[in-house]
């Protein structure tokens, strides 16, 4: 469902993502792991067609992520790492707006927004300006925006960042349910316990390069025998990799 072919992104001399090739099958929850600044967000922005790849390409459902970026959005829901909203739009209005922009008539948009606000526990604050929301509420509203058109693919940048334990658990359960319903989920995180709980496959990116990828068991058994995901993560991001980033 999601594929990248030698996807690379360079900012001047700095190689943010280098030669990234991976594929995520339909119905999978793919955890994209890596330390801060490894290139997770850059990859996600390229998948969303917001950044132009320096070379290589990404594809979702067979469509090119950059060239067909408008069409791709019909099947993709996106949550950025730091969702910013309009200063003067209430939570409910924002969600209705997003639904309308996805082509739903006003009444249908209203219905979908109402349902999602209830499900994500935002009913109480739905009439408040979205900029005033706390970090966790903003993230939940962002998630609602990503889910409102019921997309086949979800691309989520750090979906549980800033959520309290209960909200975090609810979001994770929701994601597992979505995947059971046949949705493909690509999420970036550095929370390893969450990755272990909900991801069917993971990839670890370090200094712009994919250093490991595979199912949880494969990854664990191949790198350190009998170790946890944390041990694998620490092992492959130790900094002894060839550090040609920046050259």
């Amino acid at each position: 469902m999601i594929e990248t072919f030698s996807l690379s992104k360079q900012y001047g001399d700095f190689k943010a993502v280098e030669d990234l090739s991976l594929s995520v099958a339909k119905g999978e929850v793919f955890g994209f792991l890596g330390p801060n600044g490894a290139g997770k967000t850059t990859t996600i922005l390229m998948l969303m067609g917001i950044l132009a790849p320096s070379s290589g390409r990404g594809a979702i459902g067979g469509l090119d992520c950059f060239k067909d970026r408008v069409e791709v959005k019909r099947m993709v829901g996106f949550l950025p790492d730091n969702p910013v909203f309009y200063d003067f739009l209430r939570g409910r209005e924002l969600l209705e707006f997003v639904a309308q922009m996805h082509g739903f008539p006003f009444r249908e948009a209203q219905r979908r927004a109402g349902t999602l606000l209830g499900e994500l526990g935002l009913e109480e604050v739905s009439e408040e300006f979205a900029v005033n929301y706390s970090m966790g509420m903003k993230r939940r509203l962002g998630l609602a925006c990503a889910l409102v058109h019921d997309p086949e693919v979800l691309i989520l940048d750090e979906p549980t960042n800033g959520l309290d334990p209960r909200a975090s658990k609810e979001v994770q359960e929701r994601l597992i349910n979505q995947a059971r319903g046949g949705k493909t989920i690509f999420l970036s995180t550095h929370l390893l316990d969450m990755a272990e709980r909900i991801c069917s496959r993971v990839g670890i990116i370090y200094r712009g390069k994919l250093v490991v990828s595979g199912s949880l068991d494969e990854v664990k058994s191949n790198i350190v025998s009998g170790g946890s995901l944390e041990k694998v993560f620490l092992e492959v991001t130790r900094g002894e990799e060839p550090m040609d980033a920046g050259k």
């Binding site: 900012y11 001047g12 001399d13 700095f14 600044g37 730091n82 969702p83």
Partner: peptide
């Protein structure tokens, strides 16, 4: 979202629209 995301750990060449 994007300003922060692209300026994370910025090197000299990554500032603003340096290339443009």
């Amino acid at each position: 979202m994007y300003p922060r995301s692209v300026s994370k750990n910025r090197g000299a060449g990554r500032t603003g629209e340096a290339g443009k």
